[in-house]
């Protein structure tokens, strides 16, 4: 067991074999230069890491409920500020960075209000969203992060359905609208890029935010060995661009030399299998169009 790598988040958790988020948690927390205290919204990461009597967390950790990780960490952070001021910090004075983890269900949907409040109030914390594009802990239901055309248990493909009909909610723009100092979109397959962004985000004295692509082997339906390969394809097809917004300035941090067709990414996953049929050809074209339009829009934002 790699003790250094696992110093915040130990082995023995029960995430699915081949799950992506343990690498995200360790990559981000590994960049912390001081103690960290973690809040975790209900979700896959939370339930697989804290099944009584065992907790995989070796750093202080709190799970409160599904929609309030940001509100919860706000309370912890303010308690830290005043107890430090009054020389009452348990275990003595030290610097602590507060980090909240949530899935897309807990962040795009049910936890959006609590996130917005914490960002607007300017608490000193980093929110890390591991984005597996659906409610995976409850067995793969659609969330607003699920991509257009994806099949889930609540947007199944069928004779009269090609899957999710709405576009994915653009959470990054919503968070950017809070004018926080730093936010970035990252991908678990690009660990160096992720770590650099985590470093910048952790260094912010105030709110910062990371969206990290986190493929789900169980519910996207691909073999347990493939999360890195598939995550890489997401960026190589511009489906998941890597960029950061620093003090309002958009910057693409890594771009594929030659962009692959979206289908290279889609064909690796069972959730898109139904699209490779004559009937759903237009849907595939629409998805490529959406990817191109969104990437073009991002590029235009970087030129502002």
């Amino acid at each position: 067991m790699n003790k250094e790598l696992a110093k915040h988040f130990f082995s023995g958790h029960s995430a699915c074999a081949g799950c992506a988020f343990p690498a995200i948690v360790r990559a981000v927390l590994g960049e912390a230069s001081c103690e960290v205290v973690v809040a975790n919204a209900t979700g896959c990461l939370e339930v697989t890491s804290s099944l009584y009597p065992y907790t995989a967390w070796k750093t202080p950790w709190i799970h409160n409920a599904f929609e309030n990780a940001a509100a919860t960490i706000s309370g912890v952070e303010r308690a830290y500020e005043i107890m430090k001021r009054k020389k009452r910090l348990p275990g003595g004075d030290k610097k602590i960075k507060f980090v909240a983890f949530g899935g897309d269900g807990g962040t795009y949907d049910i936890g959006l209000q609590s996130l917005s409040g914490a960002l607007e109030r300017g608490h000193n914390f980093l929110y890390v969203l591991y984005d597996n594009e659906g409610y995976m802990n409850t067995g793969n239901q659609r969330s607003s992060a699920t991509p257009y055309g994806a099949a889930t248990e609540t947007t199944p493909s069928g004779r009269a359905s090609f899957g999710k009909t709405e576009l994915r909610k653009n959470l990054m723009d919503i968070v950017a609208a809070h004018h926080i100092p730093y936010l970035a979109q990252a991908n678990v397959a690009y660990l160096a890029d992720l770590k650099k962004k985590a470093q910048k985000a952790l260094a912010v004295e105030g709110p910062s935010f990371l969206t990290v692509f986190s493929p789900c082997t169980n519910n996207w339906k691909f073999p347990t060995s493939q999360y890195v390969a598939i995550a890489k394809l997401a960026t190589e097809t511009n489906f998941w661009p890597l960029y950061e917004i620093e003090n309002g300035k958009y910057k693409i941090t890594s771009e594929p030399k030659n962009v692959k067709p979206l289908t290279d990414f889609l064909k690796t996953q069972g959730r898109f299998k139904h699209l490779f049929s004559e009937k759903n050809k237009p849907v595939l074209e629409r998805m490529q169009q959406i990817t191109n339009e969104e990437f073009a829009r991002l590029v235009s934002l970087t030129e502002k």
Binding site: I62, N64, A71, T72, G75, A79, E81, Q113, E120, R121
Partner: peptide, 23 residues
Amino acid sequence: EMIKVESEHSAMSAAIGASSAGA
């Protein structure tokens, strides 16, 4: 530290965070 939260649900959530912190 008066945290002017955006809802009562968040008021109690922040209170839980702060109380677990030890305050």
